[in-house]
Simulated assay, not measured.
Amino acid sequence: MTSVSTLLPLRVLVLGAGSWGTALAHAACHNAQVMIWARDPKTAHDINLQHRNRRYLPDIALPAGLLACDSLEQAFAFLQDASSSLIILGTPVAAIAHTCAILRDHLPAAGLQTTPVLWTCKGFEQQTARLPHEVAQAILADTIPHTGVLSGPSFAREVAQGLPVALTVASRHECVRTRATAALHAGNTRIYRSQDVVGVEVGGAMKNVIAIACGIADGLALGMNARAALITRGLAEMSRLGLVLGGDAATFSGLTGLGDLVLTATGDLSRNRQVGVALGQGQDLDTILSSGMTAEGVRCAQAALMRARSLDIDMPITEAVCSVLFDKVSPLDAVSRLLSRESRSE
Protein backbone atom coordinates (compact mmCIF):
# COMPACT_ATOMS: atom_id res chain seq x y z
CA MET A 1 0.00 0.00 0.00
CA THR A 2 1.17 3.52 -0.77
CA SER A 3 2.63 5.25 2.28
CA VAL A 4 0.84 8.27 3.68
CA SER A 5 2.59 11.62 3.46
CA THR A 6 3.50 13.16 6.80
CA LEU A 7 3.37 16.69 5.42
CA LEU A 8 -0.40 17.11 5.79
CA PRO A 9 -1.71 16.97 9.39
CA LEU A 10 -5.40 16.86 8.41
CA ARG A 11 -6.82 13.39 7.69
CA VAL A 12 -10.08 12.79 5.85
CA LEU A 13 -11.99 9.52 5.77
CA VAL A 14 -14.61 9.09 3.05
CA LEU A 15 -17.14 6.32 3.64
CA GLY A 16 -18.45 5.18 0.27
CA ALA A 17 -16.55 4.72 -2.99
CA GLY A 18 -19.26 5.66 -5.45
CA SER A 19 -18.69 8.42 -7.98
CA TRP A 20 -19.37 11.27 -5.53
CA GLY A 21 -17.39 9.80 -2.64
CA THR A 22 -14.47 9.16 -4.98
CA ALA A 23 -14.65 12.66 -6.45
CA LEU A 24 -14.61 14.28 -3.01
CA ALA A 25 -11.74 12.06 -1.87
CA HIS A 26 -9.85 13.18 -4.99
CA ALA A 27 -10.55 16.85 -4.19
CA ALA A 28 -9.53 16.50 -0.53
CA CYS A 29 -6.10 15.17 -1.52
CA HIS A 30 -5.01 18.77 -2.17
CA ASN A 31 -5.19 19.61 1.54
CA ALA A 32 -5.25 16.35 3.48
CA GLN A 33 -4.20 12.75 3.81
CA VAL A 34 -7.22 10.84 2.54
CA MET A 35 -8.55 7.30 2.85
CA ILE A 36 -11.70 6.04 1.14
CA TRP A 37 -13.61 3.05 2.46
CA ALA A 38 -15.13 0.82 -0.23
CA ARG A 39 -17.61 -1.94 0.45
CA ASP A 40 -16.17 -3.88 -2.50
CA PRO A 41 -12.59 -5.16 -1.89
CA LYS A 42 -11.86 -5.03 -5.63
CA THR A 43 -12.67 -1.33 -5.74
CA ALA A 44 -10.27 -0.68 -2.86
CA HIS A 45 -7.61 -2.80 -4.58
CA ASP A 46 -7.97 -0.88 -7.85
CA ILE A 47 -7.72 2.51 -6.12
CA ASN A 48 -4.59 1.48 -4.22
CA LEU A 49 -2.71 -0.21 -7.04
CA GLN A 50 -4.15 1.21 -10.28
CA HIS A 51 -5.26 4.61 -8.92
CA ARG A 52 -8.63 4.14 -10.63
CA ASN A 53 -12.19 3.51 -9.55
CA ARG A 54 -13.02 1.25 -12.47
CA ARG A 55 -16.67 0.86 -11.56
CA TYR A 56 -17.72 4.50 -11.20
CA LEU A 57 -15.04 6.75 -12.71
CA PRO A 58 -12.96 4.39 -14.85
CA ASP A 59 -11.30 7.06 -16.99
CA ILE A 60 -10.28 9.36 -14.11
CA ALA A 61 -6.73 9.06 -12.76
CA LEU A 62 -6.79 9.30 -8.97
CA PRO A 63 -3.95 10.76 -6.85
CA ALA A 64 -1.24 8.27 -6.01
CA GLY A 65 -1.49 9.30 -2.35
CA LEU A 66 -5.18 8.40 -2.07
CA LEU A 67 -5.52 5.29 0.11
CA ALA A 68 -8.41 2.83 0.06
CA CYS A 69 -9.58 -0.05 2.24
CA ASP A 70 -12.56 -2.36 2.64
CA SER A 71 -12.19 -2.74 6.41
CA LEU A 72 -14.06 -0.40 8.76
CA GLU A 73 -11.55 -1.09 11.50
CA GLN A 74 -8.70 -0.02 9.23
CA ALA A 75 -10.68 3.01 8.10
CA PHE A 76 -11.27 4.31 11.63
CA ALA A 77 -7.71 3.44 12.72
CA PHE A 78 -6.51 5.78 9.96
CA LEU A 79 -7.96 8.71 11.96
CA GLN A 80 -6.94 7.70 15.46
CA ASP A 81 -3.49 9.31 15.58
CA ALA A 82 -4.43 12.35 13.49
CA SER A 83 -4.12 15.81 14.99
CA SER A 84 -7.15 16.91 12.92
CA SER A 85 -9.71 14.79 11.09
CA LEU A 86 -13.00 14.76 9.16
CA ILE A 87 -15.42 12.04 8.08
CA ILE A 88 -17.42 12.42 4.86
CA LEU A 89 -20.37 10.12 4.20
CA GLY A 90 -20.55 9.49 0.47
CA THR A 91 -23.65 7.30 0.72
CA PRO A 92 -27.18 7.84 -0.70
CA VAL A 93 -30.17 8.77 1.46
CA ALA A 94 -31.31 5.14 1.50
CA ALA A 95 -28.09 4.18 3.30
CA ILE A 96 -27.67 7.09 5.71
CA ALA A 97 -29.44 5.38 8.62
CA HIS A 98 -27.22 2.31 8.31
CA THR A 99 -24.08 4.43 7.97
CA CYS A 100 -24.97 6.54 11.01
CA ALA A 101 -25.50 3.36 13.01
CA ILE A 102 -21.97 2.28 12.03
CA LEU A 103 -20.61 5.60 13.30
CA ARG A 104 -22.57 5.32 16.54
CA ASP A 105 -21.18 1.84 17.15
CA HIS A 106 -17.56 2.49 16.14
CA LEU A 107 -16.51 6.09 16.76
CA PRO A 108 -16.83 6.26 20.58
CA ALA A 109 -14.86 3.02 20.95
CA ALA A 110 -12.15 4.44 18.71
CA GLY A 111 -12.08 7.72 20.64
CA LEU A 112 -13.36 9.61 17.59
CA GLN A 113 -16.76 10.80 18.84
CA THR A 114 -15.82 14.48 18.46
CA THR A 115 -14.66 14.05 14.84
CA PRO A 116 -16.80 16.24 12.53
CA VAL A 117 -19.07 14.25 10.23
CA LEU A 118 -20.49 15.49 6.91
CA TRP A 119 -23.06 13.77 4.73
CA THR A 120 -23.51 14.55 1.05
CA CYS A 121 -26.78 12.76 0.20
CA LYS A 122 -29.74 14.67 -1.19
CA GLY A 123 -33.37 13.70 -0.69
CA PHE A 124 -36.06 12.64 1.77
CA GLU A 125 -35.92 9.20 3.31
CA GLN A 126 -38.39 7.14 1.28
CA GLN A 127 -40.37 5.49 4.08
CA THR A 128 -40.35 8.24 6.72
CA ALA A 129 -40.08 11.46 4.65
CA ARG A 130 -37.30 12.62 6.98
CA LEU A 131 -34.44 14.81 5.80
CA PRO A 132 -30.89 13.44 6.29
CA HIS A 133 -30.21 15.54 9.38
CA GLU A 134 -33.38 14.20 11.02
CA VAL A 135 -32.28 10.63 10.34
CA ALA A 136 -28.79 11.35 11.67
CA GLN A 137 -30.06 13.11 14.77
CA ALA A 138 -32.37 10.24 15.67
CA ILE A 139 -29.50 7.73 15.51
CA LEU A 140 -26.49 9.71 16.65
CA ALA A 141 -28.25 11.98 19.18
CA ASP A 142 -25.51 13.40 21.41
CA THR A 143 -23.10 10.49 20.79
CA ILE A 144 -21.61 12.14 17.67
CA PRO A 145 -22.44 15.83 18.18
CA HIS A 146 -20.57 17.60 15.37
CA THR A 147 -22.39 17.00 12.10
CA GLY A 148 -23.38 18.83 8.94
CA VAL A 149 -24.20 18.61 5.24
CA LEU A 150 -22.14 19.32 2.12
CA SER A 151 -24.14 20.24 -0.96
CA GLY A 152 -24.22 22.44 -4.04
CA PRO A 153 -24.38 22.41 -7.85
CA SER A 154 -21.95 19.67 -8.74
CA PHE A 155 -21.55 16.68 -11.00
CA ALA A 156 -19.12 14.12 -9.57
CA ARG A 157 -17.34 13.62 -12.88
CA GLU A 158 -16.48 17.32 -13.22
CA VAL A 159 -15.25 17.49 -9.60
CA ALA A 160 -13.06 14.44 -10.22
CA GLN A 161 -11.69 16.11 -13.35
CA GLY A 162 -10.65 19.12 -11.28
CA LEU A 163 -13.05 21.52 -12.99
CA PRO A 164 -14.29 24.58 -11.02
CA VAL A 165 -17.04 23.96 -8.47
CA ALA A 166 -18.60 25.86 -5.56
CA LEU A 167 -20.14 23.95 -2.65
CA THR A 168 -21.79 24.86 0.63
CA VAL A 169 -21.12 23.26 4.00
CA ALA A 170 -23.95 23.79 6.46
CA SER A 171 -23.80 23.02 10.16
CA ARG A 172 -24.77 24.44 13.53
CA HIS A 173 -21.18 23.79 14.63
CA GLU A 174 -18.34 26.10 13.66
CA CYS A 175 -15.84 23.25 13.96
CA VAL A 176 -17.63 21.34 11.19
CA ARG A 177 -17.69 24.34 8.86
CA THR A 178 -14.05 25.14 9.56
CA ARG A 179 -12.84 21.55 9.15
CA ALA A 180 -14.73 21.03 5.88
CA THR A 181 -13.28 24.26 4.50
CA ALA A 182 -9.78 23.23 5.53
CA ALA A 183 -10.22 19.87 3.80
CA LEU A 184 -11.84 20.92 0.53
CA HIS A 185 -11.26 24.61 -0.20
CA ALA A 186 -8.36 24.45 -2.65
CA GLY A 187 -7.55 24.73 -6.33
CA ASN A 188 -10.77 24.90 -8.33
CA THR A 189 -12.98 23.93 -5.37
CA ARG A 190 -14.58 26.77 -3.41
CA ILE A 191 -16.39 26.15 -0.12
CA TYR A 192 -19.01 28.52 1.26
CA ARG A 193 -20.31 28.24 4.82
CA SER A 194 -23.84 28.30 6.19
CA GLN A 195 -25.75 27.44 9.35
CA ASP A 196 -28.96 26.60 7.47
CA VAL A 197 -28.92 22.80 7.43
CA VAL A 198 -32.67 22.57 6.71
CA GLY A 199 -32.61 24.95 3.75
CA VAL A 200 -29.57 23.31 2.20
CA GLU A 201 -31.13 19.84 2.51
CA VAL A 202 -34.53 20.86 1.16
CA GLY A 203 -32.86 22.48 -1.85
CA GLY A 204 -30.80 19.37 -2.50
CA ALA A 205 -33.87 17.13 -2.30
CA MET A 206 -36.39 19.16 -4.28
CA LYS A 207 -34.10 20.10 -7.17
CA ASN A 208 -34.03 16.42 -8.16
CA VAL A 209 -37.82 16.25 -8.39
CA ILE A 210 -38.06 19.47 -10.38
CA ALA A 211 -35.30 18.22 -12.69
CA ILE A 212 -37.45 15.20 -13.56
CA ALA A 213 -40.27 17.57 -14.46
CA CYS A 214 -37.94 19.62 -16.67
CA GLY A 215 -36.71 16.43 -18.33
CA ILE A 216 -40.30 15.38 -19.05
CA ALA A 217 -40.94 18.76 -20.68
CA ASP A 218 -37.78 18.41 -22.76
CA GLY A 219 -38.74 14.86 -23.74
CA LEU A 220 -42.09 16.20 -24.93
CA ALA A 221 -40.26 18.95 -26.88
CA LEU A 222 -42.21 21.68 -25.10
CA GLY A 223 -39.43 24.22 -25.55
CA MET A 224 -37.19 26.37 -23.42
CA ASN A 225 -40.02 28.65 -22.28
CA ALA A 226 -41.63 25.67 -20.56
CA ARG A 227 -38.33 24.68 -18.98
CA ALA A 228 -37.80 28.20 -17.62
CA ALA A 229 -41.32 28.22 -16.19
CA LEU A 230 -40.78 24.88 -14.47
CA ILE A 231 -37.47 25.97 -12.98
CA THR A 232 -38.95 29.23 -11.71
CA ARG A 233 -42.13 27.75 -10.29
CA GLY A 234 -40.16 24.78 -9.02
CA LEU A 235 -37.97 27.16 -7.07
CA ALA A 236 -41.10 28.69 -5.54
CA GLU A 237 -42.32 25.21 -4.62
CA MET A 238 -38.97 24.33 -3.06
CA SER A 239 -38.96 27.57 -1.07
CA ARG A 240 -42.52 27.08 0.26
CA LEU A 241 -41.64 23.70 1.70
CA GLY A 242 -38.25 24.82 2.97
CA LEU A 243 -39.55 27.87 4.79
CA VAL A 244 -42.24 25.90 6.61
CA LEU A 245 -39.63 23.34 7.69
CA GLY A 246 -37.46 26.12 9.09
CA GLY A 247 -35.09 27.01 6.26
CA ASP A 248 -33.79 30.51 5.50
CA ALA A 249 -35.28 32.23 2.43
CA ALA A 250 -31.84 33.40 1.29
CA THR A 251 -30.63 29.80 1.01
CA PHE A 252 -33.00 29.08 -1.86
CA SER A 253 -31.52 31.81 -4.04
CA GLY A 254 -28.00 30.51 -3.41
CA LEU A 255 -25.81 27.62 -4.47
CA THR A 256 -27.86 24.86 -2.85
CA GLY A 257 -31.18 26.25 -4.05
CA LEU A 258 -31.28 28.00 -7.41
CA GLY A 259 -27.72 26.98 -8.32
CA ASP A 260 -28.24 23.25 -7.84
CA LEU A 261 -31.70 23.42 -9.41
CA VAL A 262 -30.45 25.05 -12.63
CA LEU A 263 -27.59 22.55 -12.96
CA THR A 264 -29.73 19.47 -12.35
CA ALA A 265 -32.64 20.64 -14.49
CA THR A 266 -30.52 21.56 -17.52
CA GLY A 267 -27.25 19.60 -17.38
CA ASP A 268 -26.77 16.62 -19.68
CA LEU A 269 -24.99 14.71 -16.87
CA SER A 270 -28.09 14.94 -14.66
CA ARG A 271 -29.58 11.48 -14.13
CA ASN A 272 -32.81 13.01 -12.84
CA ARG A 273 -33.22 15.04 -16.01
CA GLN A 274 -32.36 11.98 -18.11
CA VAL A 275 -35.11 9.96 -16.41
CA GLY A 276 -37.57 12.76 -17.15
CA VAL A 277 -36.52 12.97 -20.79
CA ALA A 278 -37.01 9.21 -21.20
CA LEU A 279 -40.46 9.44 -19.60
CA GLY A 280 -41.40 12.33 -21.87
CA GLN A 281 -40.31 10.30 -24.88
CA GLY A 282 -42.70 7.51 -23.97
CA GLN A 283 -40.58 5.02 -22.01
CA ASP A 284 -42.09 3.56 -18.83
CA LEU A 285 -40.35 3.89 -15.49
CA ASP A 286 -39.63 0.17 -15.04
CA THR A 287 -37.83 0.05 -18.38
CA ILE A 288 -35.82 3.17 -17.54
CA LEU A 289 -34.74 1.85 -14.16
CA SER A 290 -34.02 -1.65 -15.45
CA SER A 291 -31.48 -0.14 -17.83
CA GLY A 292 -29.36 0.79 -14.81
CA MET A 293 -30.28 4.47 -14.66
CA THR A 294 -30.96 5.56 -11.07
CA ALA A 295 -32.00 8.97 -9.83
CA GLU A 296 -32.57 10.24 -6.30
CA GLY A 297 -35.60 12.24 -7.47
CA VAL A 298 -37.52 9.03 -8.20
CA ARG A 299 -36.82 7.72 -4.71
CA CYS A 300 -37.72 10.90 -2.86
CA ALA A 301 -40.61 12.36 -4.90
CA GLN A 302 -43.34 10.50 -3.02
CA ALA A 303 -41.69 11.20 0.33
CA ALA A 304 -41.43 14.91 -0.47
CA LEU A 305 -45.09 15.00 -1.46
CA MET A 306 -46.07 13.12 1.69
CA ARG A 307 -44.16 15.62 3.85
CA ALA A 308 -45.73 18.56 2.00
CA ARG A 309 -49.26 17.20 2.33
CA SER A 310 -48.77 16.62 6.05
CA LEU A 311 -48.03 20.35 6.29
CA ASP A 312 -50.80 21.39 3.87
CA ILE A 313 -48.31 22.86 1.39
CA ASP A 314 -49.30 23.16 -2.28
CA MET A 315 -46.75 21.31 -4.49
CA PRO A 316 -48.31 21.03 -7.97
CA ILE A 317 -45.12 20.19 -9.88
CA THR A 318 -44.16 17.49 -7.37
CA GLU A 319 -47.71 16.11 -7.60
CA ALA A 320 -47.46 16.03 -11.40
CA VAL A 321 -44.11 14.20 -11.27
CA CYS A 322 -45.50 11.63 -8.82
CA SER A 323 -48.57 11.09 -11.01
CA VAL A 324 -46.30 10.19 -13.95
CA LEU A 325 -43.88 8.09 -11.91
CA PHE A 326 -46.34 6.08 -9.86
CA ASP A 327 -49.95 6.60 -11.03
CA LYS A 328 -49.55 5.77 -14.73
CA VAL A 329 -50.62 9.28 -15.78
CA SER A 330 -49.17 10.11 -19.19
CA PRO A 331 -46.58 12.91 -19.27
CA LEU A 332 -48.75 14.95 -21.63
CA ASP A 333 -51.80 14.61 -19.37
CA ALA A 334 -49.73 15.64 -16.34
CA VAL A 335 -48.53 18.76 -18.17
CA SER A 336 -52.10 19.55 -19.27
CA ARG A 337 -53.25 19.41 -15.65
CA LEU A 338 -50.54 21.87 -14.66
CA LEU A 339 -51.52 24.23 -17.48
CA SER A 340 -55.19 24.05 -16.54
CA ARG A 341 -54.61 25.41 -13.03
CA GLU A 342 -56.25 28.75 -12.36
CA SER A 343 -54.25 31.96 -12.65
CA ARG A 344 -52.84 33.32 -9.40
CA SER A 345 -50.58 36.07 -8.10
CA GLU A 346 -46.87 35.29 -8.25
Rank of each mutant, 00 (worst) to 15 (best):
G187A: 10
L150C: 13
I210C: 06
H26M: 07
A68V: 03
G148C: 09
E158G: 04
H98V: 10
S336W: 10
L184I: 12
A226K: 06
V321S: 01
D105W: 09
A249S: 07
D333T: 11
L62Y: 04
D59L: 07
T266Y: 09
L112D: 15
R172H: 15
A61C: 06
Y56F: 15
S171D: 08
L269P: 03
A226F: 05
Q126G: 01
R337P: 02
T22F: 12
I36E: 06
M224R: 02
V329G: 00
D327R: 12
S270F: 10
M315Y: 02
T266L: 13
H173I: 11
N48W: 05
C175S: 13
S85H: 10
F155A: 05
L255G: 02
I313K: 01
L107G: 06
F78I: 03
F252T: 01
G123N: 12
L62A: 11
A236H: 11
F124A: 04
L150T: 09
G199W: 00
R299S: 06
A236V: 03
L8I: 08
A77P: 00
G280W: 14
P63T: 14
G247H: 01
H98E: 12
L107H: 06
G219D: 08
P164Q: 13
Q281R: 15
T266R: 13
T318K: 00
A32N: 05
H45T: 04
K207L: 07
P164T: 12
R309F: 01
D218E: 14
Q50Y: 11
H98I: 04
N53R: 11
S3Y: 09
L67G: 05
E134K: 11
N31D: 09
P41G: 08
T232E: 05
I139A: 13
P145R: 12
N272H: 10
D286F: 13
G123D: 08
D218I: 02
S330P: 02
F76H: 06
A166F: 04
L140S: 11
D327H: 13
Q161F: 00
E346W: 15
K328M: 05
H173M: 15
L289G: 01
V197G: 11
L245C: 07
D268E: 12
I47A: 07
P41Y: 10
A182R: 11
Q137E: 15
G199C: 05
Q127K: 11
D81A: 13
W37P: 00
C100S: 15
A27I: 02
I212W: 00
L245S: 08
C322G: 02
A182Y: 04
T256C: 15
V4T: 13
T91E: 12
A226L: 02
